[in-house]
């Protein structure tokens, strides 16, 4: 029983981490909290579901969801964000406007009923361990989130692009002064962030469901994760996702009426004692 709750918590944490890592990555460099990240998740999920229904290939659906949203991210960054660059609140409010439009358009395309991908059996073996039957796809989600986390860490720590991003995070002006086109960097990072939201949508559309409203539900949890972990911090997103995922899972098992409330408790505690989050830096 407890094993199942923990495994559930971990698979949820995996999904939240993929969402939150995208948010936190874009924030670290650009100081933009993309409040349309949830709408990106929604669209990624719907596109993934459509591609899966057309082809029956889950991995293709995953890639298609990610790629389509990366493109959407490109458009948003190049056209909309470019317009209000540097005005932090306008950037966020614009994202809210975009999210409203995307949600309404999604409704007109995919309708109001919940949709979901039925996982192909080879991706979802029933794994029986110590007398407990557990769906294999959830273990795959945990694995994927770990791989993505490691991949992002390697990208930031070991590649030239990563070095440039880190330089941009630390000192935007100097990096720009060194002749590096910081705006190209912005676009690339924002697309990566959108890509992560897109694949999170496909994963969420597989082990959960996608329906109107799913966008802001998952966005809220992802925000809680980065508030706990600290904005702009990848390890912070990991810890925040773990804490949130496990509390969600245990809360649902033992106090279902208050599970949502409990999920926010660590956020309140963190805000009270360390407002910048566990791994956050104080900006300004």
């Amino acid at each position: 029983m407890t094993t199942i709750i923990i495994l559930n918590g971990l698979s949820h944490a995996g999904l939240l981490f993929i969402m939150a890592s995208g948010l936190t990555l874009a924030f670290g460099l650009m100081r933009v909290v993309n409040l349309a990240h949830g709408a990106f998740y929604l669209w990624g999920g719907y596109i993934g579901i459509s591609v899966f229904r057309a082809t029956g290939n889950w991995w293709l659906a995953l890639l298609a969801g990610g790629a389509a949203i990366a493109l959407l991210g490109f458009i948003k960054e190049r056209i909309l964000l470019h317009w209000v660059r540097g005005k932090v609140l306008s950037e966020s409010l614009m994202a809210i406007g975009l999210a409203t439009i995307l949600a309404d358009l999604a409704l007109s395309i995919w309708g109001g009923s919940p949709l979901s991908i039925r996982v192909p059996a080879d991706l979802n073996p029933r794994i029986t361990l110590l007398g407990i039957t557990y769906p294999g796809f959830r273990l795959l989600v945990i694995l994927m989130s770990v791989v993505i986390g490691l991949g992002l860490w390697l990208l930031l720590a070991k590649t030239k692009l990563g070095a440039l991003i880190r330089a941009g995070v630390d000192d935007r002006e100097t990096t720009a002064a060194l002749g590096i086109n910081i705006y190209v960097l912005f676009t690339l990072v924002f697309m990566l962030s959108a890509f992560l939201a897109g694949i999170a949508g496909v994963i969420g559309g597989t082990f959960l469901t996608i329906q109107p409203g799913a966008d802001f539900q998952v966005l809220t949890l992802a925000l809680v994760v980065i508030i706990i972990g600290g904005m702009g911090s990848l390890p912070g997103a990991a810890i925040g996702a773990l804490v949130t995922g496990l509390i969600l899972s245990f809360g649902r098992a033992y106090v279902p009426e208050l599970s949502f409330f409990l999920t926010f408790a660590p956020m309140a505690i963190i805000l009270a004692i360390r407002p910048q989050g566990l791994f956050g830096r104080a900006f300004g």
Partner: peptide
């Protein structure tokens, strides 16, 4: 108490999260 410690976009995010708690309670505390 929680919100006024922060400014700008942080304030927006935190009030969003706090608002969602109340929604969640309204929804779940049957």
């Amino acid at each position: 108490v929680f919100a006024v410690r922060t400014l700008g976009i942080y304030f927006l995010m935190i009030t969003l999260a706090l608002g969602q708690i109340v929604w969640g309670v309204a929804f779940q505390w049957v």
